[in-house]
């Protein structure tokens, strides 16, 4: 009985469950599969550079890129740039998720708000978010504020759309169960709509994270004195392809790592889903 209660005490929304044993066994091997192609390409590339098949100045081999990154790391430059970019992505993404989720929760539960706001939000979505850059710079200057707002804006739309469509597709019959038990609008939102919309919401959040990474580059290309985007510009100005490639590599590394973190966190939250190949 004690374990029964312990489980019951946990927060109701997306209570984590032990992941399936099969998933735990499959994961390392599938990760290895994913490494085969990049490693093979890197080796081939290294070989091509050594044999002089490609111009080292334009396409320096992985060893040169690694050496460049190491040098940047030794001088302390690298961690400064990384910290700047990660900080921007983190703040902007968090802001976008928060505002997007709040907006969707409001339009998803209050019908008047949905009819009032949803068309405008959908219309704003049609503007490619990069197009906001000049206006943001005009309004907020060239420092941190416009960058973070741009990233937040990029993350906002997928999160809003994911949660909004998730709420709309929650089974009406489940909502009716809430009516039978006389739940108020807030209880229906917290206990039926949000958990029911969770899979779609998480998909939106994942898309938002992808866009946050995209927009941090856009923001840093426009005017920054630090960050991975600045490294790109710097590499171009100084004609140093190794710096550019190193920055690209870091984008890939951190973009993939944060995405993988999110996916593994959400897999546990939606373990209740009864879907074909759920969680893959």
């Amino acid at each position: 009985m004690a374990t029964l209660f312990a489980r019951f005490d946990r927060a109701e929304l997306g209570a984590p469950r032990a992941p399936g044993r099969t998933a735990g066994l499959r994961r390392p091997s599938s990760a290895l599969w994913g490494l085969v192609v990049p490693v093979a390409l890197a080796l081939l590339w290294e070989l091509a550079a050594a044999k002089g098949w490609i111009a080292r100045r334009l396409l320096p081999p992985p060893s040169t890129v690694a050496a460049t990154l190491l040098e940047l790391h030794r001088s302390g430059e690298l961690s400064r740039h990384l910290a700047a970019t990660l900080g921007r992505v983190g703040t902007g993404f968090a802001l976008g998720v928060a505002v997007g989720s709040l907006a969707a929760a409001l339009t998803g539960t209050i019908d008047v708000l949905r009819r009032l706001l949803d068309p405008s939000i959908q219309a704003l979505r049609a503007i490619p978010s990069i197009a906001w850059v000049p206006l943001f710079v005009l309004w907020f200057g060239i420092f941190e504020t416009p960058k973070i707002l741009l990233i937040a804006l990029g993350a906002f739309f997928p999160v809003y759309l994911g949660l909004e469509s998730g709420i709309r597709s929650v089974d009406r019959k489940l909502v009716e169960v809430g009516r039978v038990f006389r739940l108020g609008p807030l209880a229906v939102l917290l206990r039926i709509l949000l958990p029911g919309a969770l899979p779609s919401w998480l998909t939106g959040i994942r898309g938002g994270l992808g866009l946050a990474w995209m927009f941090v580059i856009a923001a840093e290309l426009v005017g920054a004195s630090e960050g991975l985007g600045y490294l790109l510009v710097d590499g171009q100005m100084s004609g140093n392809a190794a710096v550019i490639l190193g920055a690209l590599f870091l984008f890939a590394l951190f973009g993939k790592a944060t995405d993988a973190l999110l996916v593994s966190a959400s897999r546990r939250a939606v373990a209740w889903q009864d879907a074909f190949r759920s969680g893959t």
């Binding site: 029964l4 489980r7 019951f8 109701e12 997306g14 209570a15 019959k173 489940l174 009716e176 169960v177 039978v180 038990f181 206990r191 039926i192 958990p195 029911g196 969770l198 939606v270 209740w272 889903q273 009864d274």
Partner: peptide
């Protein structure tokens, strides 16, 4: 109802305690 209409994200105990 004709269908169970359980909340798929809640275990049996929480589903029964739902109301």
């Amino acid at each position: 109802f004709q269908e169970p209409r359980l909340m798929p994200w809640l275990d049996l105990l929480r589903n029964v305690a739902f109301g």
